[in-house]
Design a protein around this nucleic acid. Structure first.
Lengths: 238, 238
DNA sequence: CGAGACGTTGAACCTATTCAACACTGGTGG
DNA sequence: CCACCAGTGTTGAATAGGTTCAACGTCTCG
């Protein structure tokens, strides 16, 4: 089970990504080309930091290829994995105006290619194209509702349900149908799941072992596939 | 310790609230008056529901006077209190376009007067006044970052620190200096704090007793005052 | 005045963490 | 090329933090 991702993205990909974005997909091709000029391409190795919480938020990013982890740190050293972003998703500080700082940390979960704009330029793009800001509002709204969902999950549900729930969530976004079942198409360790569910890696391991012996999932080093979605949903819902 | 709030808001208040909003404060007075016409005034008793999760999100609200609770429900019946809003804050679905539904529930924490617009009208207001959408982005951004902070808090800190932290947070927003200390200027029960910190009312009671005997706070039925902010910060930070 | 909401405190219990030992895997360097 | 080592995963046993259950006191409001 190997997850390889190209580390560079072609010029083609770059324009395709931008025009496919919910933000820009209603704009005329010419406008997208114009907007494209404000973006620069940036590549990162797996595990590399793109920005760190506390840094001034001068740029905004879009994932072109690969996966990005959004983290939040506690002084205790314990990290929380807020989410994993795939191709076409924004990160940085969408609402950044003036001299805001990043509230989270972004790092490459796989080798990635990202497109990046200066916040001011993006702001100007929003100003120039009416309706774009409303799109941004939608995106932020979805993120907010996901975050609230997460608060509910962590504060009102036991670990096993949290983990089942999170697996469903992730598979909805990154699942790919394979003979073995619905494979989560990216590296995903016990630690990752632990940081997403507010649990410890040991507990995640125990719960996954449970699920595996129940025939609900199949898993190995850094990968998980769902073999029985119904059962998993039951686990998450009961 | 009694918290009385007027249940109706005068026409004066209505215009004052709107023009004081971060959204509208840079607009000419005439524009605010025009916008004002789209808003209607609505009053609610303490505990009354304004909308419930799952309802179609047809309206957007601003707190004119009083406090509003934003809740999220788990099927288990356990509720999570996402936040308490005071005068001038928006609620409803800021990003609502098309036929979205409410993701949270809003209820009157105190008797309130709210101003309300139809989502479509608000959308049109955003279209007509450039820059307003950017303001909305800011607000949503702040909410998102607060929600993420909350996830970190609940999943990476022990209860006593969570409670201390939350008290500081709330006092920053609703604190009023009194002889006894920094009084949280609204009814606040053990249950409220429990629902905000992912704890049980019993645990909150124990922690507060601890803080009280340490001379950090003074509290009674439905109220809390901070007598030693330094100590509380130490409790939250260590 | 009575009833119900709110708050406190104790004791038993349980879930999940912590600590620890061990197994497997993959990549790196000698 | 193989050995080794760091990263990953598993499992067990002890522990602890917080919940749950229960009983009781107190305040407020109708």
């Amino acid at each position: 089970m190997v997850f390889t991702e190209p580390q560079h993205c072609s010029i083609d990909l770059r324009l395709r990504i931008l025009s496919r974005l919910p933000f820009f997909k209603d704009l005329p091709a010419k406008a997208v080309e114009e907007i494209n000029r404000h973006f620069v391409e940036m590549d990162y190795q797996r595990g590399e930091r793109i920005y760190t919480a506390g840094d001034p938020a001068e740029r905004l990013y879009v994932v072109a290829d690969g996966k990005v982890r959004l983290l939040q740190h506690a002084e205790s050293g314990k990290d929380v994995l807020l989410g994993i972003l795939g191709s076409g998703e924004f990160f940085g500080n969408l609402a950044a105006l003036g001299t805001a700082v990043h509230i989270d940390t972004a790092e490459a979960h796989t080798p990635i290619c990202a497109l990046s704009v200066r916040s001011e330029d993006f702001r100007q793009i929003l100003d120039e194209h009416t309706g774009l800001a409303l799109r941004a509002l939608e995106v932020l709204g979805e993120r907010l509702s996901a975050a609230n969902q997460r608060v509910l999950l962590i504060s009102a549900m036991p670990v096993d349900r949290r983990i089942a729930f999170m697996l469903l969530e992730i598979s909805r976004k990154f699942g790919r149908q394979e003979e073995m079942g619905l494979l989560i198409d990216m590296p995903l360790s016990r630690d990752d799941l632990a940081e997403m569910t507010g649990a410890t890696p040991e507990t995640v391991s125990r719960v996954l072992s449970q699920l595996q012996s129940g025939g609900v999932i199949t898993s190995g080093r850094q990968w998980i596939a769902i073999t029985d979605r119904q059962k998993l949903e039951a686990q998450a819902g009961a």
